[in-house]
Write a protein that binds this DNA or RNA. Structure first.
Ligand code: MN
Ligand code: MN
Ligand code: ZN
Ligand code: ZN
Lengths: 142, 142
DNA sequence: ATATTAATTAGACTTTGTCTAATTAATAGG
DNA sequence: CCTATTAATTAGACAAAGTCTAATTAATAT
């Protein structure tokens, strides 16, 4: 299944279609969360999503935000980015790319895959399967 | 300051010397923690270190373990490895290398820098300073 | 020895995330 | 449509990693 989103933002209809294509039941809460994520290619923490989705009137619980993000990640709709010991970022851009992380501001920026090449994947021990390769450039900028 | 440890394990004397060279006061607690870390090149979590250092008789508090690991990281004696959202690993090998992370078992393995090359460091925006480049190969192995 | 400074400590606290059991919403079949 | 069944949501308890504070203890310098 090829999930390259090309037209941002995804509107409500497109989001419902996307969920359906992944075999995810399109509930109100999931649609709301997906609309936030797929407004543009971006990196959001669970907490940022929880706040955003509830900023007009409270509508989605913390448990559902975590459940939904976990589900989206499992289905490959979003990618978890682990760069900060204190929280996970969810990346709405699942196409291959690398990251630049500003330690001081806690902000993530994309690096296009053409810009940076990793060569020499070592042979993996028997029974191991590559799940992904993360390249993170850590910067300070005080 | 060049901190390439070459003879493992570092004994008590070597550890005290190492701390002194970094301007770290060699207290009993710090020596104990350093001896665990510098027994061999390895990746340990704060919790693993806390347990190990207290396995004969309790001698070092949780606060001191965290203080000490933070201090060692600041001084460049150890390197933090952020691959798991639930805990930070401290790497006693500070020479340049990459990592392979087994998601299912939570274990980290080193990849020699010769084995894997990153080419094409993008130009950084003004005022940004590179802190490090992390390459992590994530694998499953169930 | 004493004074001064630095490190350690227990335990409260915070934050991120998980879990449970009860409620509510969605779906399917008649 | 109505009803039965299943799936999702929820509040709030809970867990784990890590931080912070104020008091104590240890190290250093004179
Ligand atoms: Mn957050
Ligand atoms: Mn741990
Ligand atoms: Zn990204
Ligand atoms: Zn390593």
């Amino acid at each position: 299944m090829d999930n390259k989103q090309r037209q941002w933002p995804l509107d409500r209809r497109a989001v419902i279609k996307l969920l359906g294509d992944c075999g995810i039941q399109a509930t109100q809460q999931r649609i709301d969360i997906a609309q936030i994520l797929f407004h543009q290619p971006q990196h959001l923490s669970a907490d940022q999503i929880l706040k955003t989705v509830n900023e007009s009137r409270p509508s989605v619980s913390k448990a559902t935000v975590y459940n939904t993000l976990g589900l989206f990640a499992d289905k490959g709709l979003v990618r978890q980015v682990i760069v900060d010991p204190s929280r996970v970022f969810y990346d709405s851009n699942t196409s291959e790319h690398h990251h630049l992380y500003d330690i001081d501001h806690g902000t993530l920026t994309d690096i296009a895959p053409e810009q940076l090449t990793v060569s020499g994947m070592p042979a993996l021990p028997d029974g191991m399967v590559t799940e992904g390769i993360d390249v993170i450039i850590r910067v300070r900028s005080e």
